[in-house]
Design a protein around this nucleic acid. Structure first.
Ligand SMILES: NC(=O)c1ccc[n+]([C@@H]2O[C@H](COP(=O)([O-])OP(=O)(O)OC[C@H]3O[C@@H](n4cnc5c(N)ncnc54)[C@H](O)[C@@H]3O)[C@@H](O)[C@H]2O)c1
Ligand SMILES: NC(=O)c1ccc[n+]([C@@H]2O[C@H](COP(=O)([O-])OP(=O)(O)OC[C@H]3O[C@@H](n4cnc5c(N)ncnc54)[C@H](O)[C@@H]3O)[C@@H](O)[C@H]2O)c1
Lengths: 224, 224
DNA sequence: AGGAGTTTGTGAACGGGAGAACAAAACGAG
DNA sequence: CTCGTTTTGTTCTCCCGTTCACAAACTCCT
């Protein structure tokens, strides 16, 4: 019987943290369709996970359900949002406004999920005349002042791979402590800085591996 | 002593499969910089993983190193590429040529890693006049014939979330067995079809969670 | 040829996550 | 108030993945 600190039941497993946003999305969907209460079974189906896993995940946050009834959609949604930290708005800077940077800047889904793009930066002076998604593309040299003025702690790297490490170094020096990296490179950053990478080529290669094996052995597998 | 089938040492752990593309990228980098031989330590550092893990991963493919020496960069690169299946070219279709679809279509990294975009499809007739990255944007109705004519088995979904499931259903019916999904929805597909999802909002939310906790407890953590 | 030095490949210990199963709690009917 | 039904929260077990540590294998030097 661990005396559970009721206010801050800390250290949520990483695997659970990665699923909380999925639950949040599912709950938002349920709320929009008018559902006010749902069981772990329903929510699990909507989120595409096992219901036991869902319940265990939620138990790390606290006891927000009612036995025999289920969960209040709106209440649980708020609790998860609070736990993740998306009840507040997070300012974000995007560096590298090329093909991908444009798409990211124009994406409305970030805003609706608690993130606000405060600046678009690019090293190429030709880009600086452009206005993307209502924001001026500014010089990369402005990074430090923008980070300081807007209390930015999250940065997105969408530059070519060769530039990524130097951009990351500069971000870290400017005070950014979380980086989402789209460039296909391993970034090295000091302790205390989180890096997550998104590599589309790797995803395709994983699919190709399984695809190749389907041709010989029909052992099918669904990776979600 | 499991009699290791030398030609097909099958069932590589999923976690290893996900890292093989990283090793491949690291090896390509080493090869380009003129390195012909490397130790597991060097390669692990380049790929950003533990060297013991790297060696164990490679051991699933076979014994391609030489004790006391290391690995032949070019030889190992080929072996990994063959194992993943990227020695051949994989035809790919992209559905939903909006912000993200444009970026994907223009991305040269796919081509250089064994993937060839054979068609860009969109439901919006206004898009059909467009030429992106040297390809006509074609009607979604052409899906079946394109898949059949080009033996496409991999599809990319970059449509809004509401359309994603119906696009996936249509892809599966047309014969596609691997899907990379960018829409923030859970797709349900029959057994035998692989789905991988890329959700940028989830990545940001995971960063936000850790960021939020940094403010209170300085227990830093690097997630790569 | 033999020994010293390197580096691989793998056995074994460890930790974390997934899922089954169940006891505890809430609710409603009678 | 009591019993039956529903559903949560949690315990327990199993499996996968990570990491350590070391014997086996190879090279080079003397
Ligand atoms: N486009 C895609 O769909 C896609 C897919 C997967 C991965 N990626 C990766 O994302 C990254 C960006 O891709 P892209 O297609 O947008 O490339 P891009 O060449 O279109 O854009 C890169 C932008 O970064 C800017 N830049 C270069 N060096 C910079 C620096 N030091 N500081 C600031 N800005 C700098 C360039 O001026 C350019 O505008 C690449 O690393 C690419 O490998 C892209
Ligand atoms: N843009 C981004 O950076 C970004 C980031 C994260 C996630 N996403 C997700 O990626 C998806 C695409 O984003 P986007 O910004 O490119 O959206 P978008 O609206 O710019 O483009 C969507 C395209 O899909 C087409 N489409 C709609 N229904 C279709 C159907 N049934 N069949 C074929 N085509 C159809 C539309 O005509 C449009 O061209 C969305 O689900 C979005 O949530 C985008």
């Amino acid at each position: 019987m661990t005396a559970r600190t009721p206010d801050s039941a800390r250290d949520i497993p990483e695997a659970t943290v990665a699923r909380l946003p999925v639950y949040l999305r599912a709950l938002t969907g349920l709320a929009e369709s008018g559902t006010t209460t749902c069981s772990s079974e329903e929510l699990a189906a909507t989120a595409g996970v096992n219901s036991a896993k869902l319940r265990k995940d939620l138990s790390y946050l606290g006891s927000y359900g009612t036995r025999g009834v289920g969960y209040d959609v709106e209440y649980l949604r708020y609790q998860i949002a609070r736990e993740i930290g998306v009840t507040q708005d997070w300012p974000v800077v995007i560096v590298g406004i090329g093909n991908l940077g444009h798409a990211l800047a124009n994406y409305s889904g970030f805003r609706s999920r608690g993130f606000r793009v405060v600046a678009l930066l690019d090293a190429d002076p030709d880009r600086h005349e452009e206005v993307v998604a209502g924001l001026d593309v500014r010089s990369f040299e402005d990074l430090e002042s923008i980070v300081a003025d807007n209390a930015v702690s999250i940065g997105v790297i969408a530059t070519p791979a060769v530039a990524a490490q130097s951009v990351a170094d500069r971000m870290v020096a400017a005070g950014i402590t979380s980086i989402l990296n789209f460039a296909p490179t391993v970034l090295s950053v000091p302790d205390g800085v989180d890096v997550r990478k998104v590599d589309l080529s790797i995803e395709l290669q994983i699919l190709a591996y399984h695809e190749q094996r389907k041709s010989v052995a029909p052992g099918a597998e669904v990776v979600s």
